[in-house]
């Protein structure tokens, strides 16, 4: 059992993706990236991440649907889901938690804070 945690980052903005990939890699995570919902679903078929950083607004399949999929799959439901979104309304945040997310981070976020929160989650 490897102690390196697998993290899946899903976001359609390439710069955010790039930044998060760099950040997580630098801090000892095994990073997988997906540029859209479809790619994300493909990845979770093959590998089970420990944490998923999930953007919500994406052109094909949105983050909520992906979270639902993860939380309803036997092998995936242990994975911790972290929503990242500019959607900051109470209702959006509540919906996120209702779907089983462990954390809801609003954009723009601080990379330092995000890192700390992610590390807390898996310990």
């Amino acid at each position: 059992m490897s102690t390196t945690k697998k993290i899946l980052v899903v976001d359609d903005d390439p710069y955010i993706l790039m930044s998060l990939e760099f950040l997580m890699k630098k801090n000892g995570f095994d990073v997988m990236v997906a540029r859209n919902g479809t790619e994300a679903l493909e990845i979770v078929e093959k590998q089970v991440p420990d944490i998923v950083l999930l953007d919500i607004m994406m052109p094909d399949v949105d983050g909520y649907a992906i979270c639902k999929h993860i939380k309803s799959s036997k092998k995936l439901k242990e994975a911790k889901v972290v929503f990242m979104s500019a959607k900051s309304k109470e209702t959006d945040i509540q919906k996120g938690y209702d779907l089983g997310a462990s954390l809801y981070v609003t954009k723009p976020f601080s990379t330092r804070q995000l890192l700390k929160q992610v590390q807390e989650l898996i310990s």
């Binding site: 903005d13 710069y15 790039m18 930044s19 950040l23 500019a86 723009p108 990379t111 330092r112």
Partner: peptide, 19 residues
Amino acid sequence: HELRTPLTSIRAMAELVHD
């Protein structure tokens, strides 16, 4: 909302370069 996306990446990238 739309403005926050580029702001997110700018902040993230700036923080990373800085840190």
